[in-house]
Design a protein around this nucleic acid. Structure first.
Lengths: 246, 246
DNA sequence: ATGGTCATGTGGCCATTACCACTTGGAGTA
DNA sequence: TACTCCAAGTGGTAATGGCCACATGACCAT
C-alpha cells in the first residue's frame, strides 16, 4: 500500500488519499474517536491542496469511516459504523461478504410474455411482446437459501444463453462484461409471506413456512430500468442488513 | 420560492441553489432525462462560481434528483428515482410519510435489568445495572401495526416520564428537545419470525402468523449507541422500502 | 459513402487564496 | 477565585483560474 500520492496516477488524487486513510483506519493505526491530522496538516503531509483533501474526507465520511466536528476536528468512527451500508449487490456478492459459498440451480431461462405487474415495473410499452426470464434456486453453502425469479428488459435484442450464465455464475457480471450494462441504483421492498407447496418443496421447508420476499427494480447507468427481480428467502436462513442515515 | 441566491443569507449558497433546482424539478418545469443548464451557464445565471455549483449538484445527485454524464451534461432523474432513500426515521415519521395515522399504546415504561443481548448491543459495561425500557403497541390508522420494545442508554441519569412521552408521542422528538440527543445513524437488520401467542393477541393476529422483525441500534451525534429497538411488524400490514446504490 | 480529424462544449479534478463559524484554552480582569 | 475575552486552531464555504477526459458533430480526405 503506497503511503504517498502520485500526481500522475490514473486515479484522482482525492481518491488515492481516501484509500490511504482508509487503509490506516482498517489497519488499526488509528483508534476510534481519535482525531486524524487536520486538513491543513494533511496538505503538508501529502503535498496536495485542501481542495483535494476535502472530497477525500467527504468520501470516507459517507462510507462511515470518519466523522467531522466543526471547530474540533475529524475523527475515526468506531468499528461498528465502518461496515455495510445500503449497497447494491448481487446475491453472489452478498453471500461472499457473509462468508457463505454462493451457488445456484437454473430452473428456467428463456423468453416469456411478461405478467402485468412485470410489465409495469419494467416500464414496458404495450408493443413489447416478450422479455427474458430467469428462474433460479439460490444456494448458500450448498443448501437452498432462496428462490429467485428475474425479468430483464435488454437493449436491442441483446441476450445471453444458459451456457454463458452457467459459466460465469453471476448475471450482473455477465451483463457488465458482455452488454456493458452496469447496475447503479435500485429500489427494493421487503415483506413477509408464507411458502406455497411448490416453493416449499424447492426450498426444502414445510409448506406455510415464513419467507422473506424481496422485490427489486434495478436501474442501469443510463437510468433505464433493466431488471425486475423477486427473491423468496428462507426465513430461517436469511437476515437483511441496512445502514440508515439522517 | 426565491429564484435567486442571496449572498448574505444564513444558509450556504450551494444549499440555496440546490433548493431552487429541486423546486424546479418537483414543480415539473423540467422533464425526465432532460439536461439542466451546464455548470458554466449556471455560473452566469445565478452569479455564483462553479465551486458553489458543484456541491449543489452533488447534493441533488446523492438525493436522486439529478444524474451526471461526463462530457454530455447533467440530467433530471425520472420521478421514480426521486423519493425515499435509506433514511433514518422513527415509526411516527415512517407512518406519516405513508399517509397512515400513527398511534401507540404504552404497555410498559421503566428501568429494567438489561438482558445480555441488550447489554451487548448498547455497549454497556458490567457496572451498568439498569436501563430505561419502553414497551409499546404501535398503531396505524387505529389498528395494530407492530410491537416495539426499546432500550435506552441515556447520559447521566437523564430520563423522561410516561406523561411526557404520552404528550409528545415520539421518543425521538422527546430526546431531541429535552436531552439534545439527535439520532444520526443506525444499523438495522430485518428477518422473519412467527407470532407467539402473547404477541399474537396484542397484534390481533393468529398465533404462528408471519411477522417482520426489525432490530436497530441507533447512534447519536456524538457517535455513542443510545438506543436498541426491536419492532415486530404484522406481516400482512407492513412493507419495508430501501434504496440501494453502488 | 466512409472514415478520420478536430474544434467545441461538457463534467472531473485541482491549486491558490480568503473569509466565516465554531471550539478550546489561556491570558487578562474584576 | 471566578469571570470575560480573545487568539489560535479546526472544519465550512466560496471565488478564481486552469487543465484533463469524454462526447459530439462538422468538416475533410479518401
Amino acid at each position: 500500500m503506497p503511503d504517498h500520492i502520485d500526481p500522475d496516477a490514473y486515479v484522482p488524487r482525492y481518491y488515492q488519499l481516501a484509500n490511504i486513510l482508509r487503509e490506516q483506519i482498517l489497519a488499526g493505526n488509528l483508534e476510534a474517536h481519535q482525531p486524524i491530522s487536520s486538513e491543513r496538516e494533511l496538505e503538508k503531509i501529502y503535498k496536495v491542496s485542501r481542495t483535494t483533501i476535502r472530497p477525500a474526507i467527504d468520501l470516507l465520511v459517507r462510507q462511515g469511516f470518519l466523522y467531522r466536528e466543526h471547530g474540533k476536528g475529524t475523527f475515526v468512527s468506531p468499528p461498528k459504523l465502518q461496515k455495510g451500508i445500503s449497497e447494491l449487490t448481487s446475491f453472489t456478492e452478498d453471500m461472499k461478504r457473509r462468508g457463505i459459498v454462493p451457488g445456484q440451480k437454473i430452473l428456467l431461462i428463456g423468453y416469456v410474455e411478461p405478467p402485468e405487474k412485470v410489465r409495469f415495473q419494467l416500464e414496458l410499452g404495450k408493443h413489447v411482446q416478450e422479455v427474458l426470464c430467469v428462474d433460479r434456486l439460490r444456494l448458500g453453502d450448498g443448501a437452498p437459501m432462496g428462490l429467485q425469479t428475474s425479468y430483464y428488459n435488454l437493449p436491442d435484442g441483446l441476450s445471453f444463453t444458459r451456457e454463458e450464465l452457467e459459466e460465469i455464475g453471476s448475471i450482473y457480471a455477465l451483463l457488465r462484461e458482455k452488454l456493458h450494462l452496469i447496475p447503479t441504483e435500485a429500489d427494493e421492498t421487503l415483506e413477509v409471506t408464507v411458502a406455497s407447496p411448490h416453493e416449499a418443496s424447492l426450498l426444502r421447508v414445510e409448506a406455510g413456512s415464513p419467507l422473506l420476499l424481496s422485490q427489486r427494480t434495478t436501474y442501469s447507468q443510463t437510468r433505464k430500468v433493466f431488471e425486475f427481480a423477486k427473491i423468496l428467502y428462507r426465513g430461517d436462513r436469511y437476515r437483511y442488513f441496512a445502514k440508515l442515515t439522517r
